[in-house]
Simulated scan of single mutants.
Amino acid sequence: MPNILVTGANGQLGSELRELSSAYPRYTFTFTDRDTLDLSNLCKMEDYFEDKIFDAILNCAAYTAVDKAQSEKDLADAINHRAVSILAKIAKLRNISLVHISTDYVFNGQNYRPYVESDPADPQGVYGHTKRHGENTILSVAPKNTIIIRTSWVYSSFGNNFLKTMLRLGKERDSLGVIFDQVGTPTYARDLAKAVLEILPHINNESPEIYHYSNEGVASWYDFAQAIFELSGVKCTVNPITSDQYPTPAKRPHYSLLNKSKIKNDFNISIPYWRDSLKECLNTLGETK
């Protein structure tokens, strides 16, 4: 029975994988968090693997505080880059499959069509740079049976995210200003988790491959907020604002659409429409009208 290590088990994707794990009895899962496998403590990472055997690593751990990363560069780099290098070397040495989760922030957000995997990376902030360095270290170490999945705008019934923030603020206020000039696709972490588990047995490549995954469709953050309130029945007026009306320490991509043709064709998976998945997540939270 394949033994699967999941890092970042308390994050949005890791939590969804844990929730789904009982539906995949052919696997034995080991879920690790910061207490059991701290990816910021590089000296102890290799020690963790000394007496353990894994068939696959699903690296869901990441430093994702985009704005804080601007002032915590070393910590972000340790988790998003240097720890990934160690995981890639362990995967290569021990012949372990590796699935690494990356982000749309490796791009500059200035495209005019959905990004394909071969488009040049041009991260605009510390978070994006450290995630791109993580991708590059995997590509340079080149373990077999390894894939990198870039995703965008992740939300879940677990953890802190835009969906939960909107639900909270929408119940507290009569109106909210939400950015309309940043466009992408909300991605339900449960859909991504299901895709990873469907893909896992079919990974068979000599060198690492990059894939894109988000839900289907297009939205701005304004559209996303409108849909949250519409589907949940929260009475809150959403006012469109521009990015410069809501300045942040880290620059956000204005265009984050990802082309998913490669992952759909290579692994024969279907991807749900973002509003359908949003409704499913709201149902899980008990927030539908």
Rank of each mutant, 00 (worst) to 15 (best):
N3R: 15
L5D: 04
G8L: 04
G8C: 09
G11W: 00
S15E: 09
L17T: 05
S22T: 11
S22V: 07
Y24G: 09
Y24M: 05
D33R: 08
D33H: 08
T36M: 03
C43A: 12
K44R: 12
F49N: 07
K52T: 03
I53E: 10
L58D: 07
C60E: 04
C60G: 08
C60S: 13
A61F: 01
A62R: 00
Y63W: 14
T64N: 05
E72M: 11
E72Y: 12
D74W: 03
L75I: 15
A76S: 15
A78Y: 10
I79F: 00
N80Y: 01
H81S: 15
H81V: 00
A83V: 08
A83N: 05
I86L: 15
I86Y: 09
L87K: 02
L87S: 04
I90H: 05
I96W: 08
I96C: 07
S97Y: 02
H100D: 08
V106E: 01
F107S: 03
Q110S: 12
N111I: 06
Y112H: 09
Y115Q: 12
V116W: 00
G125V: 04
G125N: 15
Y127N: 08
H129Q: 14
H133R: 14
G134N: 09
G134S: 09
N136H: 06
L139R: 07
S140R: 14
K144Q: 13
T146W: 00
T151D: 05
W153G: 11
V154P: 06
Y155D: 12
S156A: 14
N161S: 15
M166I: 15
G170C: 12
E172W: 02
S175I: 00
V178G: 01
V178N: 02
F180S: 12
D181M: 04
Q182M: 07
V183H: 09
P186I: 10
A193Q: 06
K194N: 09
L197E: 11
L197H: 14
H202I: 00
E206H: 09
S207I: 12
E209C: 09
E209V: 13
E209T: 07
Y213S: 05
S214G: 10
E216C: 06
G217L: 11
V218K: 15
W221Y: 14
F224C: 02
A225M: 03
Q226A: 06
L231P: 00
S232M: 09
K235G: 02
K235C: 07
V238Q: 08
V238Y: 15
N239K: 14
T242F: 03
S243G: 11
D244A: 01
Q245W: 11
Y246I: 00
T248I: 06
T248Q: 15
P249R: 13
P249V: 14
P249G: 12
K251G: 02
Y255F: 15
S256Y: 03
K260N: 13
I263E: 10
N265G: 04
D266P: 01
N268F: 10
I269V: 13
S270F: 10
S277Q: 06
L278K: 03
L278A: 02
E280I: 08
E280N: 12
C281D: 03
C281F: 01
L282H: 11
T284F: 04
T288Q: 08
